[in-house]
Simulated assay, not measured.
Amino acid sequence: MNKSCISCNHHNHEEIDVHTTCVSLVPIFNHLEDEQMFEIAKLAKSKKYKKGEYIYQPDDTADSLYIINKGLVRIFHLTESGKEQLVRFLNPGDFTGELAVFRTSHHDSFAEAVKDTTVCMVTREDLQSLLSKYPAISLKIMEEFSNRLDQSEKQTTLVATEKVEARLAMFLVELLEEGEKEVILPMTKKDLASYLGTTPETLSRKLSSLEERDLIKQVTNKRIIIKDADTLLLV
């Protein structure tokens, strides 16, 4: 075997190692045996995106499952008036494009790399053959659908609430872990404003208002102490 072939094989093994790591991060796959995950890793392809690049846009064909290996991805819609409506962030181990498993469709949102990002992709055809071989994956995907529906309903409730302060209060209390008083915002204030259906300026004013009323304390840009969760929910 010549040197170029040895180099090629070495590269392929390295790629499969990366894909195995990627696949093992994902809840819909990480319950499988190592050999089964390795089988999925061999089907995966990886692609790198620079900060600001789109992984997909509305009307692009949805024909693959995208798994975030490294980096951060932002999923958002554009409203009729052209404003961004944040849907969620995807961290390493999170995935998007799962509808491609069940039907041929088109994306209706944007997936943007917030920083340099590496994504592993598994095509619809490969996914369907995996589902027939390992039915447990289907159950995990349905579980994820259920989680996302729950998150979507919570966001709809927030945006449908008339007062921005009430939306903000519900969001902050939702972040509170049992027995804790401090929350860490999972996104920038600009993105939080988009998520809550308001402007960054209004969000800043409402945070200041809640602080003046001694309901919260802003420790840093992202760290907030909730002083009185029960009263906060009554604003």
Rank of each mutant, 00 (worst) to 15 (best):
M1Y: 14
N2T: 12
N2C: 11
K3C: 12
S7A: 11
C8H: 13
C8K: 12
H13V: 12
H13G: 02
E15W: 08
E15L: 15
V18Q: 12
T21Y: 10
C22Y: 05
P27Y: 01
F29L: 00
L32E: 01
L32I: 09
E33P: 06
E35Q: 15
Q36Y: 06
M37T: 03
L43P: 00
K45D: 13
Y49E: 05
K51F: 08
K51P: 04
G52E: 10
P58K: 07
P58R: 04
D63N: 07
I67T: 02
I68R: 00
N69H: 13
K70T: 12
V73W: 09
F76C: 07
T79C: 03
K83S: 05
Q85C: 03
R88M: 11
L90M: 05
F95A: 11
G97M: 00
F102N: 03
T104M: 14
T104H: 14
T104S: 15
T104F: 14
H106C: 09
H106R: 12
H106Y: 12
H106N: 10
F110W: 15
A111L: 03
A113C: 02
V114K: 09
V114S: 00
K115P: 05
D116I: 00
T117Q: 10
T118S: 12
V119C: 04
V119P: 02
C120L: 12
M121C: 14
T123P: 02
T123V: 08
E125D: 09
D126M: 04
D126G: 01
S129V: 06
L130T: 01
S132T: 15
Y134M: 07
P135C: 06
S138E: 06
K140C: 02
I141D: 08
F145H: 11
F145L: 14
N147Y: 13
T156C: 09
T157H: 09
T157C: 02
V159Y: 07
A160M: 11
T161I: 02
T161S: 02
E162S: 07
E162G: 07
K163A: 15
E165R: 13
R167G: 00
R167I: 03
V173G: 00
V173T: 01
L175V: 00
L176R: 00
E177P: 06
E178Q: 03
E180K: 15
K181V: 10
K181N: 14
E182P: 05
I184S: 14
I184P: 10
I184Q: 13
L185A: 09
P186G: 08
P186Q: 06
P186E: 01
M187V: 07
L192I: 09
L192N: 04
A193S: 13
T199L: 03
P200D: 01
S204Y: 12
R205Y: 09
L210Q: 03
E212V: 05
E212N: 15
E212F: 06
L215S: 01
I216C: 01
T220L: 09
R223T: 11
I226T: 01
K227I: 01
T231N: 08
L232M: 08
L232H: 06
L232I: 08
L233F: 07
